[in-house]
Design a protein around this nucleic acid. Sequence first.
RNA 1: GGAGAGAUGGCAGAGUGGUCGAAUGCACUGGUCUUGAAAACCAGCGUACCGCAAGGUACCGGGGGUUCGAAUCCCUCUCUCUCCGCCA
Length: 423
Amino acid sequence: MLQIQRLRQEPEVIIAGLKKRGIDATQTVNMLIELDGERRQIRHSLEDKQAQSNALAKEIGVFFKSGRAEEANELKAQTAQLKQEIKELNEKVSLLEQKEHDLLISLPNVPHHSVQDGKDEKDNEEVGRHGEIPLLHKGAKPHWELASDYNLINFELGVKITGAGFPVYINYGARLQRAMINFFLDENRAAGYTEYQPPHFVNAASGYGTGQLPDKEGQMYEMPVDGLYAIPTGEVPITNIFRDEIVNSKDFPIQSTGYTPCFRREAGSYGKDVRGLNRLHQFDKVEIVNITDPESSYALLDEMVAHVASLLQKLELPYRILRLCGGDAGFTAALTYDFEVYSAAQERWLEVSSVSNFETFQANRLKLRYKDADGKTQLCHTLNGSAMALPRVLASLLENHQTPEGIKIPKALVSYTGFDMIK
RNA sequence: GGAGAGAUGGCAGAGUGGUCGAAUGCACUGGUCUUGAAAACCAGCGUACCGCAAGGUACCGGGGGUUCGAAUCCCUCUCUCUCCGCCA
């Protein structure tokens, strides 16, 4: 959520920024500023009346104590009118606050200045590329065929147990998956991250804190009996660890990582996008979350990008880095870099990581703050990224490393898998 | 699932109708003392909004009510803990 103070101070910057997302926010911003002014004015007179009422109550108390009941009763008569006025003003203020909040929450984050204008993924900028696209042998197969040939993943079994998009990993497939989770967690830990095992269900307050609620509840599996949601990403529980906290700036950057399964309804997906491991309802992901101050958040974003890049290099996978354009960036992000690995047999790029700086957008909802050098309480900057999402890494690993003899395991993983070849 | 207890500042914990935004202790920050540290002592120390400031307003789990006045009384919701049952 954007800060209303910022809207007041630099509305034109916000309007110009949101234009990059293809949104004309002029009307909303103007309405917000107007609502805010009105609210503050009414609030002022409300507080004025409250001050009067408090003063009267105090006087009455003094009179009663000193036994001057008559004088006290005289003052009492004066309070009725005030009380009524306070009640009315209070209702007005609440109404305005509600309207203001609803409107404010509808605005997405303002893109960073480096973000380009653009409509969708076709307008994203490639800012980096690494690794050779492998020339596969004749008869090379997409991962879903490999998964079946080597009995690594059984999609039909998942359909039987649960439904489409809930695969069952078997034997080498299951072990490879487990190895990758450990590999990613260890790499993140070595880079300074503290490891967490958070809950996989969250309450509504947490969903709101990271921005999934109120708009994106359609994306999450819901358990209405208990008021809980299955997490769509580890970002939700891990970031919410710090909700309503005033953290110590000495601890910056606060680096957290955790492995969680992720659950997404993915309503409306179809076709080749959902083939095999490309898009699932349940998948595994290791997430990294960072909290820091506004001064260092973009340097930290660069570090996160470098870290994720190093993971893909160790897995010997060709990848490219995209800076998302305004129209393709997520609602809460100011700047997002996507990592895509090349999936050689499908001959397409698959998104495996998304690294974002949310600036104060999440922190404002989370009430996540720190004290600056002057002792003033300020909103933190939050950042997060996948390091990494497993299924597509697995898909590209199977496709890129397949040989006529079997599938080779990258060196960095062998100590985790305990095998160097799937035959 | 059944029965009971409770929810107060970073934490612990007082406070049952009026000068309580809230005692006290711990933690934290600054200072004195010390070669340095510890201890001791002194001072400061919640959050948000409005205001140049003085200051004002709100907040004692959430919502509502009684009252001139509510952390304190009433209603309601949520959550936590203890005991019993079940159980990895």
